[in-house]
Every structure is written in structure tokens, then in C-alpha cells.
Nucleic acid binder design. Structure first.
Length: 287
DNA sequence: CCTGCTACCTGGTGGC
DNA sequence: TGCCACCAGGTAGCAG
């Protein structure tokens, strides 16, 4: 479920394996994911050292020592698995010895010291590309990417400005990566429930106090999820090194017919469809 | 420019 | 048990 908190969790899990390590080999099992791999993908990576692993919105950014960046997006179903140095995987054998389904293992990166990471993605909506570090923000992928919701820039005043005159719903506005980058279907539902704002309401109708509440709710929702991811990360690392999915108790998402979590609210969560996607909210307290 | 729809791809689930 | 329709965390591209 890669929205911003999941991607950040993956980043934290991969950083110790990747940072400061030389890439020894890259195996791509197929010519493409959502998009074709770039020209000479493996050749351009092998021998490079990952100087740092960062994140922008839902993108992972592995900085390389030749001033290129390996840009990775997990799409809907992408995940990484970490194999420690002692896993001793035979060349060509993509799957972890203890893991069963490896049908959708698409790429493996092996690092100096013996650790490796494997990218698995059943639906293949994810992708990887290489881009020069300079002017990365001008790259077509990032040119229109909006503000980082956990950065200092996001507050009520900015939301008011971003949403000014918008007739589109709050749900759609929050999902628009050109405005705020990193929220997805789940955390939009969560943040709206937390701030008691209706997903169907026109984005341009927010009052300053509501915009402030929404900004705080977005931040708190993401921070809580990242904290939950952090604890799950430890569990997974002990289990089999799987990264990319973690359990999280949601207040509204996927809780149709269940009681609203808002203190004192006696409402029941309802599911509606907005622009083709499920929205979960409480009609009682979200106005 | 804005808004909304479709497509991309596979797997899991629930109804019959 | 099988079959099938429907649903799923994202986003690029296109029509209006």
C-alpha cells in the first residue's frame, strides 16, 4: 500500500543496505515494468555507489556517485525484499530461499558485502528510471509535483491558497499530487475523518480554521502511519525482510458500517464512490 | 487551464 | 469446486 508513509518506511528499511554500498550486479527479469527500463540500465548502475537514499512524495531516490539518481516508484503493488549477506542466493535464483511466490520478482540489486534487495510488483504499475541529479525537480516526473506534506511549508494558510476557488471535492483536491504530494486514497480518507471535513465538500469552501485543522490532521495522520511502519519494519526485518506492506489500524478506510472513531460521535462509516474510487467517511461528524 | 474518465496489470474475494 | 464479476494502495494520457 505505497502511499507516502509506506514509501518512507521502505526507504528506512533499504537505507542501511544501500547507503555507502557499491552496486555489484543488477538483474532485470523483463524489459519493462510500467515503462521500459532506461537504456543500459544495469550497465549504468553496476560499479556505482549509492551515496544516499532519499524520498520525494511517493518516489524513492537513490543518489549515485556519478551524479545520476535511480528513481523508483512502487505503483500500487510494488515492494522490496532485503536479503542479508548470508542469504547466499544462487545467481539467477530470484527468490529468497524461505519465500514462496517469487513470480513477480522483477529486479534484483546486489551490493558489495553480499546483501541484496529484490523488487517485486504483481501489477507492474511501478517503474524505475535514471536521471541526472542536477535539475531533478525539472524532470517531467517531478516538474508538477506538489508540496511535501511533512515539510514546513504545509499549513492552513497554504491549503487555503492551494484550494482557493476550487470547485472540485476535498477528496479529489487532496489526491491531486500537483497540490500536495504523497497522500493516496487511504490517508486522504483518514485525514478528512480526523479533521471532521466531508470528502464531498468543495475544496474552495474551507474556512481558515478548517484549513488549519486539515493541515494538522494530514501531518498527524502521516506521522502516525510512519511510526506504525517503523514498528512493523522491525517485525518484518526479523521475519523475512519483506518491505512495502504493513498493518495499520484505520479510523475510516475500509470500515464501512463500523462506528466512527471520533470521540463522542455516534455516526457510522459510510462508503461512497468519488471519481471512481472508494471514499470512507462519517456523514455524522464530517461536514 | 481545469476536470473527469480510461487504461495499464494481476490477484484476491465473494456470489452463485 | 469452478466460474465470473468486481475490487484494490497510483498516475499518465486524453477528451471535453
Amino acid at each position: 500500500m505505497p502511499e507516502l508513509p509506506e514509501v518512507e518506511t521502505v526507504r528506512r528499511g533499504l537505507a542501511p543496505v544501500m547507503e555507502g554500498r557499491r552496486i555489484e550486479s543488477v538483474e532485470a527479469r523483463r524489459p519493462d515494468l510500467r515503462f521500459p527500463f532506461p537504456e543500459r540500465f544495469a550497465e549504468r548502475l553496476v560499479g556505482r555507489t549509492v551515496t544516499s537514499l532519499g524520498r520525494r512524495a511517493k518516489y524513492l531516490l537513490a543518489d549515485l556517485d556519478d551524479d545520476e539518481v535511480l528513481v523508483m516508484h512502487l505503483g500500487m503493488s510494488g515492494s522490496f525484499r532485503v536479503e542479508p549477506p548470508d542469504a547466499a542466493i544462487a545467481p539467477g535464483a530470484f527468490h529468497h530461499p524461505r519465500s514462496k511466490a517469487a513470480t513477480h520478482d522483477h529486479v534484483r540489486f546486489a551490493f558489495a558485502g553480499g546483501a541484496s534487495i529484490t523488487y517485486n510488483d504483481p501489477r507492474r504499475f511501478g517503474f524505475m528510471t535514471l536521471s541526472p541529479r542536477a535539475n531533478l525537480e525539472a524532470h517531467p516526473l517531478f516538474r508538477h509535483v506538489g508540496v511535501e506534506p511533512l515539510g514546513n511549508a504545509l499549513d492552513g494558510a497554504l491549503l487555503l491558497k492551494l484550494f482557493a476557488d476550487k470547485k472540485t471535492s476535498l477528496k479529489a483536491a487532496l489526491l491531486d499530487q500537483r497540490l500536495i504530494a504523497g497522500l493516496g486514497n487511504i490517508y486522504v480518507c483518514e485525514a478528512l475523518n480526523r479533521s471532521r471535513l466531508s470528502p464531498t465538500r468543495a475544496a474552495g469552501t474551507l474556512k481558515p480554521s478548517q484549513a488549519e485543522a486539515l493541515a494538522s490532521a494530514i501531518r498527524a495522520t502521516l506521522e502516525d502511519a510512519i511510526a506504525a511502519g517503523g514498528s512493523t519494519l522491525r517485525d518484518f526485518a526479523h521475519a523475512d525482510g519483506a518491505l512495502g506492506y504493513f498493518q495499520h489500524a484505520f479510523r475510516a478506510y475500509d470500515r464501512e458500517h463500523e462506528p466512527c472513531a471520533t470521540p463522542g460521535c455516534r455516526g457510522v462509516i459510510r462508503r461512497i464512490v468519488q471519481t471512481g474510487r472508494s471514499t470512507f467517511f462519517c456523514p455524522e461528524c464530517q461536514k
